[in-house]
């Protein structure tokens, strides 16, 4: 075959490849874990957006998913259980110039961090919140999480919790998240695109990633047979999105809601007075 030019690229070339965002520290997740894919989706999304690694901060709490920051070459913050959104909010509000992405799991994000989740949605700071949901606590050996099915048997809750499972997407929507999407770890490229879109969208973007736990929930390997692209495009009508989310079977993948609420960003760095000016207020 003779040399022919490569197809014309219609995408502007990124100066970065996904590999630029990987650190040399190797993941300790179980082989087969969906989080490997999500890590690669993070790095692919950063490459799509062509962000310099030092302009990105990846913030997390505790759990399998929260190990992500150290596996990237970005700035990382691996804090305490359930508080990643708070730390990320502080960072973003103090440093609006940074891209702040938060990694969490269903235990970290919906149980111990549930309150912060609600308020982060309602505050709508310009953060991207990626929750790797596998319906189980992995790091502590398989306890039920808020998204676990009520009859899932475990040592800590024999016979199941009997509790209705949490619907994070509907809650995010109701609490005011500006961008709501569901992704699937088995589709790292699609997930990367969703994460990139979430980062691009101003305000609080919530991406729930179905990320199978092959150790404690091996049946989640079947998820790949059930996921499908959302049959309808993203809506900007929250009521419509809520209705869809309340009635879908949990396997529709894609951006489900995209609003245009302006992000919360107090005017950091705008005031020009000095402490000496303030001092005059105390003078008698």
């Amino acid at each position: 075959m003779s040399a022919v030019p490569a197809p014309a690229a219609d995408a502007p070339k990124s100066a970065h490849t996904a590999a630029d965002y990987k650190s040399d520290y190797k993941p300790i997740w179980c082989p087969g874990c969906g989080d490997y894919s999500v890590l690669s989706s993070f790095t692919k999304a950063f490459a799509i957006l062509d962000l310099a690694p030092e302009r990105i901060a990846v913030v997390s709490g505790i759990g399998c998913s929260s190990r992500i920051p150290a596996y990237t070459s970005c700035y990382g913050f691996h804090g305490v259980h359930g508080r990643s959104l708070a730390a990320a909010t502080g960072l973003k509000l103090a440093r609006p110039d940074l891209t702040v992405v938060v990694a969490s799991g269903d235990g970290d994000g919906y149980s111990i961090g549930g309150n912060h989740f609600l308020h982060a949605c309602r505050r709508n700071a310009d953060l991207t919140y990626v929750v790797m949901d596998n319906h189980v606590y992995g790091m502590t050996k398989g306890q039920p999480s808020p998204t676990t099915e009520p009859d899932w048997d475990s040592k800590l809750s024999p016979g199941g919790t009997g509790l209705r499972s949490f619907n994070p997407l509907v809650i995010a929507l109701a609490a005011g998240a500006n961008f709501v999407a569901r992704a699937f770890a088995g589709d790292p490229n699609g997930t990367a695109e969703i994460i990139a879109e979430a980062i691009r969208t101003p305000g609080f973007s919530f991406v729930e990633v179905m990320s199978p736990c092959v150790t404690f929930r091996p049946e989640q390997r079947e998820w790949k047979h059930h996921v499908r692209p959302s049959p309808v495009p993203a809506t900007d009508d929250a009521a419509k999105a809520a209705r869809r989310l309340m009635t879908d079977d949990g396997f529709n993948i894609g951006v489900l809601y995209k609003g245009d609420r302006p992000p919360y960003q107090p005017p950091m760095g705008k005031g020009r007075k000095t402490p000496a000016d303030l001092e005059r207020g105390f003078a008698i």
């Binding site: 901060a57 913030v59 804090g79 508080r83 730390a87 502080g90 912060h116 609600l118």
Partner: peptide, 18 residues
């Protein structure tokens, strides 16, 4: 913040940011 857990984690985040 929404509670004291958030407030201290927020300031840790901000300080981490310099």
């Amino acid at each position: 913040a929404e509670d004291e857990l958030a407030s201290i984690n927020m300031i840790i985040g901000a300080s981490y940011g310099g």
